[in-house]
């Protein structure tokens, strides 16, 4: 497998992770998302795409989902912010997901409010064909924010937080489509941050980026953990080791192993995990 990252950021991240490890030995430490016996189906229960998933996602940590393509990583991610609602026949068939203590599959939960709390960044960067500024302001505007100075402030703050401000501060009025691929993806992250969520879900955020842009986004992800809980789906195991504190390995709709990243990659408990991370399949 190609090594895409330079040593510099890699070693930096490793040390950051080591420090965190000593602080919390247990994964369940203040879980933001609690998944219990979850089964999920795209066809009203005929076949379960996800089966009996149990995991807790800790606060202010980066959690990586890895596994071969089609194993259900995106599906689980989209359960968290109920993006699967858009599919008529999609259904949680068993178990529950609790986010910050409340069950999100409860019909009384408003997915609109939920999604403001749980932002999402997509695999294919999808800025609107509007100006850079309007892209970041989108979430605020639909949330009813009218105050120009407030929006200005949050736009600047979000772009800074997404490590994009210096590159775009002079071209806020330009179309977002004129940015490079990596900048577009960071713009999408800024757009998500602007809504001030507490969790950010990222579905293979770097898979369409070149190595240099990937490095920048990866660095960004590691800094995001200070303020947000991040869940990142990746099919790139080096990336998981670089950015995440804990890693969940999925295979054919099941959660095979979930542990601290350092432990899972160096000393996997399951044979399947070992086969996967050593590149024997997937």
């Amino acid at each position: 497998m190609p090594v895409v990252n330079e040593n510099r950021s890699s070693s930096e991240m490793t040390s950051a992770r080591d420090k965190n490890n000593s602080e919390d030995e247990k994964l369940a430490n203040e879980a933001v998302i609690e998944v219990e016996n979850l089964s999920f189906s795209y066809d009203l229960g005929k076949t379960n795409t996800l089966r009996d998933i149990n995991l807790n996602i800790p606060k202010n940590k980066v959690t990586a989902f890895i596994g071969p393509s089609g194993c259900g990583k995106s599906t689980l991610l989209r359960c968290f912010n109920r993006m699967n609602d858009t599919i008529a026949t999609a259904k949680i068939t068993a178990g529950s997901i609790k986010i910050m203590g409340s069950d999100v599959s409860n019909p009384r939960v408003d997915p609109i409010l939920l999604r403001k709390e749980i932002g999402m960044v997509f695999q294919k960067s999808n800025p609107f064909p509007k100006s850079v500024y309007e892209n970041v302001a989108f979430g605020l505007r639909i949330g009813g924010e009218r105050n120009k100075t407030a929006i200005d402030e949050i736009v600047e703050e979000s772009l800074k937080r997404a490590a994009l401000w210096d590159e775009v501060k002079d071209r806020l009025k330009e179309s977002a489509l004129s940015l490079s691929g990596g900048q577009q993806q960071r713009l999408c992250i800024a757009r998500t941050i602007a809504v001030q969520p507490s969790v950010i879900l990222m579905d293979e955020p770097c898979s369409a980026l070149d190595p240099v842009a990937t490095t920048v986004v990866e660095e960004l992800i590691t800094t995001l953990r200070e303020d947000y809980t991040v869940v990142v789906v990746t099919h790139n195991m080096q990336q998981a080791t670089r950015v995440s504190d804990s890693t969940a390995f999925f295979y054919l709709g099941e959660l095979i192993e979930y542990d601290l990243t350092s432990k899972l990659f160096t000393n996997p408990a399951k044979k399947q995990t070992e086969d996967y991370i050593s590149g024997r399949f997937g």
């Binding site: 609109i112 409010l113 999604r115 932002g119 999808n126 609107f128 979430g139 639909i142 757009r191």
Partner: peptide
């Protein structure tokens, strides 16, 4: 992607349709 982005930012269905 435009629809997904709008929805994930907490837009209602109508806001998604109207704005993006």
């Amino acid at each position: 992607g435009f629809r997904d982005a709008a929805l994930s930012l907490g837009a209602t269905q109508w806001q998604t349709v109207r704005k993006s």
